[in-house]
Design a protein around this nucleic acid. Sequence first.
RNA 1: GGAGGCGUCGCCUAGUCCGGUCUAUGGCGCCGCACUGCUAAUGCGGUUUGGGUCUCAAGCCCAUCGGGAGUUCAAAUCUCCCCGCCUCCGCCA
Length: 421
Amino acid sequence: MIDAKLLREDPDAVRASQRARGEDETLVEAVLAADRARRDSILAFDGLRSEQKGLGRQVATASGDEKTALLARTKQLSAAVKDAEATQTAAQSSYEDLLGRLSNLVEGAPPGGENDYVVLEHVGEPPTFDFQPRDHLELGQLLGAIDTERGAKVSGARFFYLTGMGAMLQLALLNLAMAQASAAGFVPVIPPVLVKPEAMEGTGFLGQAAKDVYYLPEDELYLVGTSEVPLAAFHMDEVLDADRLPMRYAGWSTCFRREAGSYGKDTRGIIRVHQFDKVEMFSYVAPEDAAAEHQRLLAWEKEMLAKVELPYRVIDVAAGDLGSSAARKFDCEAWVPTQGRYRELTSTSNCSTFQSRRLRMRLRDADGVRPLATLNGTLATTRWLVAILENHQRADGSVVVPAALRPFLGGRDVLQPGDAL
RNA sequence: GGAGGCGUCGCCUAGUCCGGUCUAUGGCGCCGCACUGCUAAUGCGGUUUGGGUCUCAAGCCCAUCGGGAGUUCAAAUCUCCCCGCCUCCGCCA
């Protein structure tokens, strides 16, 4: 939810943001009209209610004929109050519905759509092989690490088993990420992955992303596509003391995505799957600190990528490709040798005050209570295994384990085909 | 799954049976002021959140007693549904 006051005072800024995203500009007019209707209805209701309360106090102390007369008047008024209240409730909810459809205000993202990102930097060199490199699935099968056939047999397309060293490698990666986050001051969290509609709605995933969300109608619960959801909703309906900020959490969770509309895309291997694991960073900060925190999250992602020794580039995602909650987004994309291109491994979004308004989270400082900003960023996912396997492979199908991961694998420095667990 | 209890503006708490100056009591904490070498103590005042009005502020107004619906001229208080917490019983690990 965007700042209603800003919308009223500077609707052009909101129109410009909608335009940059390629979204409906005329929505701005509709919201403004609904806002006027809402305020009119509040004015009418408050006035009547005030009168009713005054009369009520007189009734309480009156008696006899005087009381009878007062009761007659107040009875009439009561009907008018009921009408006004119904009008107000309707006006309020239609206003909120419209306001909720506006995406967050873009802050500095390049204009354009999916292909209009700006490359900010390249880090590391793509490896050169004097042999024909194998892709991650072939390596995974050689190493007994990835089993997509049985994944499909048991659960369907886009499901897989991690077995043996594959399972261990993923645990090592996620543990390394948790260790880094914890050392940086993040509170480690293992959150619930089934959440109420309120949490899903509040984080902005029931808008344009709704088709990618698993829903359990019997229980009215959603499976989260990222621990961003439970981490953002963690402080729902709370007022946080400003001197406790920034508050940082690192969530480890399984993530579930329907991947509707991506049929035929990345069907091989584990690049795009319905279920994977992820360590996610999440920050609550003062709005004026959000841009700086965004850079810090990006720096922590780069630190993690350096630890697993992957070549990658950083892109500034274009306005039209942002999620509805994000004001700006940076992705780190690792080189995938067999695809000859960079693929997203991390994504960090500055949601400014958009999520905190929807989830009714505020900060309290000397000046009073005001919204706060939320940001999130990826620290490791199952997809990282793709890049690690492919970039660190050797001619015999073995894979060199990056030094930072070895302590989490009992000191093992190479994964060998035929390795016993 | 069955039975019962509880939920009040940071924390604790009065009020709910029997609806009406509840415009929600008191304490703790916190903030401001006064007094005082300093601190402490004491005294006085303030202290939920959201919204509306207003150029801003102050002020004023409305809503808010877990959430929703209902009864009533009037609901913290009565009725129903839901949520959460606790206790006991049953069942399963």
